[in-house]
Design a protein around this nucleic acid. Structure first.
Lengths: 139, 139
DNA sequence: AATCGATATATGTTATATACATATATTATG
DNA sequence: CATAATATATGTATATAACATATATCGATT
């Protein structure tokens, strides 16, 4: 018979889960990559950001605009107002040469992080397999 | 001639780099996996943690002990004092059934995060390739 | 023409894991 | 016996994620 352990819908699980603390949402590289693909404005980036799947909670509008502002002030992106079209005026952002280098650095480090996760998961799998072989129940 | 852009050793790069903000150091799942492999104590976990490669700055002793204390108070690990050996008394921690389930959840979510990074990196690669084909210089 | 939702940008506030520092005590070493 | 290593523990600062709120325009509905 399967052992049942009180676990879900509990505050303590949430506290120690993946989602605890501040998540790395990869907002900066996501914005930079989207701008590498096509110059865009805050609202559009906000809509596209979930495509990467880094979060399930959706982007935070405040975070997008603040990040764009900050990236611009340090020269990683540049912007111009789009007043031509109808609708509210849009601030169209583009990635700069400096921004492309920053994105490249991010890609390198994200790849390293990915490799670390792979190492972890393989080690976990191996450990579970070893435990199963010694007859110990996993849970 | 290769264009040189002022970039490194600058404060603004650091501010927007991968290491900006609080990194996900995967301390909780790392501790849980190490304890799944073998019951251990804080100091030993501190030494083993870098094996995963999640950081290059090394673990923070404070974080290890605080995390262990917190995991224990919620029943994910349990501990007993080891007074048998020589040396300073060690608090030997083991993973509980509840802790094993928590670790399993972490593994699932880390795998999803890994997949998102892979998607991102492939999209970045594709974008660079497309830019190269249109003759635009990447940097 | 007034209400409502979507579009679009922007600022204010709080919670918290990380990051660094410090404190304590024991054992090993030179 | 002073110093380093082992071992556990607490104090504090900080960046940013997460949530909330504010402003204004435009399009659709009533």
């Amino acid at each position: 018979m399967k052992q049942k352990i009180a676990m879900n819908s509990n505050k303590d699980v949430e506290k120690h889960s993946f989602k605890c603390g501040r998540q790395k949402r990869f907002l900066i590289p996501s914005i930079l990559l989207l701008l590498l693909e096509k110059p865009s404005h805050g609202y559009e980036l906000m809509e596209k950001y979930p495509e990467f799947g880094f979060t399930d909670t959706g982007p935070d509008a405040g975070a997008i605009y603040r990040t764009l502002k900050s990236l611009k002030s340090d020269g990683f992106v540049e912007s111009k107002w789009n007043t031509g079209n109808t609708g509210a005026a849009k601030k169209i952002y583009s990635i700069t040469g400096k921004g492309k280098i920053l994105l490249k650095n991010w890609a390198k480090e994200m790849n390293e992080k990915k490799n670390s996760i792979v190492v972890f998961l393989e080690r976990y799998k191996k450990s579970n397999k070893a435990l199963a072989e010694t007859g110990k129940k996993l849970f």
